[in-house]
Design a protein around this nucleic acid. Structure first.
Lengths: 138, 138
DNA sequence: GTATATGCAAACCGTTTGCATGGCT
DNA sequence: AGCCATGCAAACGGTTTGCATATAC
């Protein structure tokens, strides 16, 4: 089976003003290739790339994820302290964090209704509101 | 000025079933001695102990903070990835995270009203809902 | 006396960085 | 050609751990 053109990934990189290198395209394809939202760790993406037969060094995965974040293509979500999670979905939405298996998933945004939010102290503005619903197995 | 008996700290440790050693009492006193809510990092508490003339090793600060958490006396809040924050306030309440100076403070709980929350997937229960309002300087 | 806490230094682990090589425009 | 990305290995920083000593009960 021939590798797909991955136009979606090309466009995505271009939107962030990033050069479409082989490694970036491979990682982008793993992240947004099927249009689904994804939550990955650096290590997890590295493994996925290896499993897909793509050779990308771990340092490049880190550098690339950081570049994607700075380009506004990804969001980093902090829930675990020991790992960083990267979310392909860019709007402000709640997350489930599965404490037992250290997994992060989207929570249905429509089911979260915040009718009042503390206002930002003087001299500051809200850059983001993180809502993390921590789950444990029953 | 003579050191106070620190009854509050004694009681606090007892409530967690923890032996009142010199180091634990010193750290407890720094955390809850004046009854105010506090958000500390391990390093910050270590410095505070040193500044107060109390000799506590950094490893013990880490071990003690972890013991306090496991005893249900503290909560760990994850906002930064590179550091862990410990909160003396135990109820579910929102936080301000000051991105520019890496500081965590309480947000007025009364000003946060959540009228709908995604329900926990089957097989899980909600252990905590973290709401972090990230602030940046204007 | 026994179990547990402390201190030190070394190990740990995810992440970042310096530098030489290779690739995109 | 010039700038930027990549890869490797070494550095980094916060946290944890092993082990000998000291302390609470």
């Amino acid at each position: 089976m021939q590798t797909a053109p991955a136009e979606r990934s090309m466009t995505w990189l271009a939107r962030g003003g990033l050069r479409p290198t082989r490694q970036r395209l491979a990682l982008a394809e793993l992240l947004i290739g099927d249009g689904m939202d994804r939550h990955v760790t650096a290590e997890g993406l590295y493994d996925a790339a290896a499993a897909a037969g793509e050779s990308v060094s771990l340092a490049t995965v880190y550098n690339t994820l950081r570049a994607f974040c700075e380009a506004g293509l990804l969001n980093e979500i902090v829930v675990d302290g020991s790992r960083g999670y990267f979310d392909t979905r860019m709007d402000d939405h709640p997350h489930f964090y599965w404490e037992d298996d250290h997994r992060l998933t989207d929570a249905p945004a429509a089911d979260l209704v915040i009718t009042a939010l503390p206002e930002a102290p003087v001299g500051t503005t809200v850059s983001r509101v993180d809502v993390v619903i921590r789950l444990k197995r029953t």
